[in-house]
């Protein structure tokens, strides 16, 4: 899926959460959006997922403005895993099946695919548990499975490992890399964990105070940042 944002601004009352942000998401690659807390990462992902409308600028998907061209089809090919995932008031397996059901996938396949997705995140034995009783880390893994099971062309991950122990961080990171490799899917992840950005992403975008400060190949950006602000952020001198 080809995703591009042009001159995006998003204003919340008197706060400018995004300020004229424009870039093209490299297709089939993993892109990390890094930046300190409050820099606009979540806001940006939500606009790409069409949950919020930009105040200015536009989103272009596969060369078209999705708002004008029946975005429901486009929406079914992407999914966002939220920073603080909420569970539906149902069992774990019913949560994971949700997206397949609204896509009218064949019932026998729904169960099979959902169970496999749960196994992949290490929750194979939790299918029947009432989802809101999952621990924070389990919720996060379940939310990831709930997105992955849809085999989306575009996956938007918002701090998708924030509540996890190192073992599970490694597990999910591997799932992301494998999925990206095996499916040619495009992945955009927001993180303030620089190590994670380094480990996972091919490309990197640095946001600061709603502005896009720098973008480029991850390796290059980490080894030789151009902007002094990027340099400061990478060396941990910015606390926000």
């Amino acid at each position: 899926m080809k995703v591009e944002v042009k001159g995006l601004s998003k204003r919340f009352e008197d706060r400018l959460a995004l300020d004229d942000v424009g870039f093209q998401v490299p297709e089939g690659k993993i892109t990390a959006i890094v930046g300190p807390s409050g820099s606009g990462k979540t806001t940006l992902l939500r606009i790409i997922n069409m949950l919020d409308r930009p105040t200015k600028g536009k989103l272009v998907i596969n060369g078209k403005d999705p708002a004008k061209n029946g975005h429901s089809q486009v929406l079914k090919k992407m999914v966002m895993v939220f920073q603080n995932p909420v569970m539906f008031n149902r069992s774990v397996i019913a949560n994971v099946s949700y997206g397949l059901k609204v896509r009218r996938v064949d019932k026998t396949k729904v169960k099979d695919r959902s169970e496999k997705a749960l196994e992949r995140v290490g929750l194979g034995d939790r299918a029947g548990q009432y989802a809101p009783t999952l621990s924070a880390g389990e919720s996060q893994r379940m939310a990831f499975a709930r997105g992955l099971v849809l085999e989306p062309e575009l996956m938007l991950l918002d701090e998708f490992t924030a509540n996890l122990d190192p073992g599970n961080v490694a597990l999910l990171e591997k799932l992301v890399m494998d999925y990206n490799k095996d499916s040619d899917s495009t992945i955009v992840l927001a993180t303030h964990n620089l190590y994670q950005a380094k480990r996972l992403s091919h490309h990197c975008i640095f946001l600061f105070d709603g502005k896009l400060i720098e973008k480029g190949r991850t390796k290059k950006m980490f080894s030789s940042p151009k902007d002094p602000l990027t340099k400061k952020f990478l060396s941990g001198e910015i606390a926000w």
Partner: peptide, 24 residues
């Protein structure tokens, strides 16, 4: 608040969304 966003992000159309909210 996020229930609605979660359902939409997972691909729910308007009717799915209303059904989901009622069920929740």
């Amino acid at each position: 608040k996020n229930i609605e966003d979660t359902a939409r992000s997972l691909g729910a159309n308007r009717i799915d969304l209303i059904k989901t909210m009622l069920y929740e």
